[in-house]
Amino acid sequence: MSLLTTSSQTVGPYVKIGFESFTVVELAPPSVSGERITLSGRVADGDGKPVNDAVIEIWQANALGKYAHPEDAQDKPVEAGFRGFGRCLTDAKGGYRFTTIKPGRVPGPAGAPQAPHIVVTVFMRGLLKHLITRVYFPDEAANAEDPVLKLVPADRRATLIARRSPRDKAALEWNVILQGQDETVFFDY
């Protein structure tokens, strides 16, 4: 039997009331192992204006490259207290911020390991269906061989790689630019 997939509709301008009681901006309690990082940035529309009514959701593996999910059959441990899910509503300046740990490498198509990355889902008024993109890490040799990054035109790959803050090595900055010259790469998922 085949059923027709339900159509997507926008979250609209009032998504905050739906999601604010279930926001997760600190993903890793102290007991969780791994390199502590912050991931922050802003969301901007086609006029470069901040988007103050967006929702950013992130999904990631733990420091060993294991997802807290039954389909991850790798022989690696999950860690208590680490779900790997975050959700942040943007503020008046279009900003978002998560504290988490850097994920380990997970297998990709045909078993080739992927470079460390975080999957990002973006919702907002004006998006009839959500966007999916990824954040990769700066100074990461594995990026050159990443099977998904290789599918992205070379001149647009930089939009998926976070920048390290010059003031704080643990602070990564990454923006979501919806349109224009520096438009973030979004995926057909």
């Binding site: 926008t10 999904w59 779900r83 990355h117 004006g126 999916i132 990824r134 919806l178 995926f187």
Partner: peptide, 30 residues
């Protein structure tokens, strides 16, 4: 979808990149 005005400044204008479904996409928060 121009009939919904907010899409004009928020819809991506560059082509989407085909994303193979890897372990990162077939898993998700439990």
């Amino acid at each position: 979808y121009p009939g919904y005005r907010s899409t004009l400044k928020r819809a991506p204008t560059q082509p989407l990149v085909f994303l193979p479904h890897t372990l990162s996409e077939v898993t998700g928060p439990v």
